[in-house]
């Protein structure tokens, strides 16, 4: 190995933390955006599949003229986490303020996924309508709420599902 190569190697070794950060940054950027695209595709596909089940967040959408066969309690949840790229991007954005879109899409994905899981469970039971849907969001994880901590958010959706006698 020549002296020049050795010197470069030395520099990398001395700044291993920075190298590691850059590596994580790009890993987060590439795999994070691939994962997000794939997730959105699957969300859109499944949302179209379940479009024929009405979901309301009011409790009084029951058809009184039809006889009720079964009442179920259905729920769905999803925990989503930030990646290094999103955190870095958000940290820059926080200097100027304004919308942090990288966080918005993350929570949007979690919420839609939770509702889809709820619908999937309801579909298996052959329900006709889902009423009184409630969504609860809470931040969990060991660093939740701490400064500089990696946040993960749990979205929990629950509702009452009703099937009418055919």
């Amino acid at each position: 190995m020549s002296n020049e190569n050795l010197a470069i190697f030395q520099i990398i070794l001395n700044n291993l933390d920075i190298v590691f950060f850059i590596f994580l940054f790009f890993l987060g950027l590439v795999s994070g955006s691939i994962a997000e695209n794939n997730h959105y595709k699957s969300i859109k596909k499944r949302e179209e599949e379940f479009i024929n089940i009405p979901v309301v967040n009011s409790g009084d959408f029951i058809d009184e003229t039809r006889e009720i066969e079964n009442i179920y309690f259905v729920s769905g949840s999803c925990v989503v986490a930030l990646d290094y790229f999103k955190m870095f991007f958000a940290a820059i954005k926080q200097i100027f303020g304004g919308r942090i879109e990288s966080y918005e899409t993350l929570i949007d994905r979690g919420r839609r996924e939770a509702i889809l899981r709820l619908k999937e469970k309801a579909m298996k039971k052959n329900v006709d309508i889902i009423i009184n849907l409630r969504i609860e969001t809470s931040s969990i994880g060991q660093n939740a709420g701490q400064k500089g901590g990696i946040g993960s958010v749990e979205v929990f959706a629950y509702a009452t599902a009703i099937s009418y006698r055919k």
Partner: peptide, 11 residues
């Protein structure tokens, strides 16, 4: 946490 997205274990 590096990649982001869903944490199946926690769910």
């Amino acid at each position: 946490n590096i990649i982001g997205g869903e944490l199946k274990g926690y769910t």
